[in-house]
Design a protein around this nucleic acid. Structure first.
Length: 260
DNA sequence: ATGGTAGACATTCTA
């Protein structure tokens, strides 16, 4: 079973790339972020013709998350229960696999903008609410994968220039602590289960030739519960879509679970 | 210290 995550920065613009990518990478589930489309404008027909069911929490202009899957997802949950939020940032589905049912969750964590912004405390509050929610989800679904754009680079090796970025948003100690609190529930960064090239990143700023200079951050992650970690046989970032004309600023991340 | 690019919407906000 293969699962993946991709912040597409507008599904409207990136739909052809998503369809091409799925044809070349026929994963069982693809979590998407930054759809920037309301529910009634999602390209459900095109995705169905490509062989995928769509469960989504859409939103016009900003945010919006989805899980595309070969089999229809069930027990669809939108947003974080009890966390009052107009921004569509979380979507969970349950899928069947040979090792039992798996909870797949697509997350678009807040960016935070800067440490001085009012979006920064919102980001930390969102992470705290996510932590409490995932704790409950883990109790019900021991085989759980949380995939998405976390907008946090966990360690300095996930940052192209740690000195320049020190203390900045996406890297600051409170954000890293918030991500670690989530991981401390019993999750594992699938990417770091394996040897990886140095300077591996998943996001590069559109500005200042960020991709060409590999001036990036690793902020897109696949977090696996203990029960899934033992089945994970690979995890990689696919930089190819970032090389295309009119790319998303993020690259997909794929993990393979040996239970299928 | 500033602005650089991209997307959506409407000329500014978010990332």
């Amino acid at each position: 079973m293969k699962i993946a995550t991709w912040n597409v920065n507008s599904l409207k613009v990136r739909l052809p790339q998503v369809l091409d990518w799925l044809a070349a990478n026929p994963v069982d589930a693809l979590c998407l972020q930054e759809l920037k489309l309301p529910d009634d404008r999602l390209p459900l027909d095109a995705l169905r013709e490509a062989g995928y069911h769509t469960a989504a929490a859409g939103q016009s202009t900003y945010n919006g998350v989805a899980v595309l899957s070969r089999q229809p997802g069930r027990d669809v949950l939108r947003n974080i229960p009890g966390f009052d939020d107009a921004q569509q940032r979380l979507l969970a589905v349950t899928l069947d696999s040979p090792c039992g049912e798996i909870r797949i969750i697509s997350a678009y964590c807040p960016n935070g903008q800067s440490l001085e912004s009012d979006k920064y405390p919102y980001k930390l509050a969102w992470f705290a609410a996510l932590r409490d929610h995932i704790e409950q989800e883990l109790a019900r679904y021991p085989r759980l994968a949380l995939l998405g754009d976390f907008n946090v680079a966990p360690e300095d090796r996930d940052v192209h220039d740690p000195v320049k970025w020190e203390g900045q948003v996406l890297v600051s100690a409170p954000e890293r602590a918030a991500l670690q609190a989530l991981i401390d529930l019993g999750l594992h960064d699938a990417f770091r289960l394996f040897d990886q090239p140095e300077k591996s990143f998943s996001w590069w700023d559109y500005r200042q030739l960020g991709f060409r200079r590999n001036a990036g951050l690793r902020i897109d992650h696949i977090l696996l519960s203990d029960a899934l970690r033992e089945h994970c046989v690979s995890c990689a970032i696919d930089k190819e879509p970032r090389r295309l004309p009119q790319p998303s600023d993020h690259a997909p991340v794929i993990a393979e679970l040996g239970c299928a």
